[in-house]
């Protein structure tokens, strides 16, 4: 074997592509690595390890697990500039999020994701602030919001939807 040569494995390739397609990244095979997404991506501007173009290439070559511990995908702003300009309708954002979903179900996500997920389940709001009633009154609004946190039956509906999902397997709640 020549030094520096990477051997690609067809089975790894199939698994990587299937994993991403099943989780919403159905355009992955259309990518020709033109780099349009990278040219407009905030992740790339901020110099994260991964950007959509690089991630797509890794998946196309079958290196699904390679970057599982890399947190770059969680810095994706879901801004969709890449979806707007991609000339091949790859929808790169959807591939980044499909990879996140793969990472998440392998428990490779940050603690910040856990807190907002817990808030959503317990209060109906991912972002929550205990002091909200006082803040609202200060600007002349009623202390209670007309949202899920004030309606137990609404909260029950949200919990039912989450409880009937694969997320329960993660044991977060």
């Amino acid at each position: 074997m020549y030094e520096g040569v990477v051997v690609l494995n067809e089975k790894d390739r199939e698994l990587a592509i299937k994993t991403i397609m099943e989780r919403g990244g159905d355009g992955v095979l259309r990518c020709i690595q033109c780099g349009a997404c990278q040219s407009t991506c905030p992740m790339a501007f901020a110099d994260f390890t991964l950007n959509p173009r690089k991630l797509i290439r890794l998946i196309q070559l079958g290196f699904l697990e390679e970057m599982i511990e890399d947190s770059s995908t969680w810095a994706c702003q879901a801004c969709n500039r890449c979806v707007e300009i991609c000339p091949r309708n790859v929808k790169p954002f959807e591939i980044v999020f499909a990879y996140r979903r793969y990472q998440a179900m392998e428990l490779a996500f940050s603690t910040s994701a856990v807190q907002s997920q817990m808030n959503l389940y317990m209060k109906g709001h991912a972002v929550f602030s205990e002091a909200y009633k006082e803040t609202r009154q200060k600007v002349g609004l009623p202390p209670e919001t007309p949202t899920a946190v004030s309606y137990p039956e609404a909260l029950k509906e949200i919990q039912t939807l989450i409880e009937n999902s694969p997320i329960m397997e993660l044991g977060l709640f």
Partner: peptide
Amino acid sequence: GASCCPSWGTLPS
């Protein structure tokens, strides 16, 4: 009774 949309870092991820 409206909830969080839910934001990008929660259920969509």
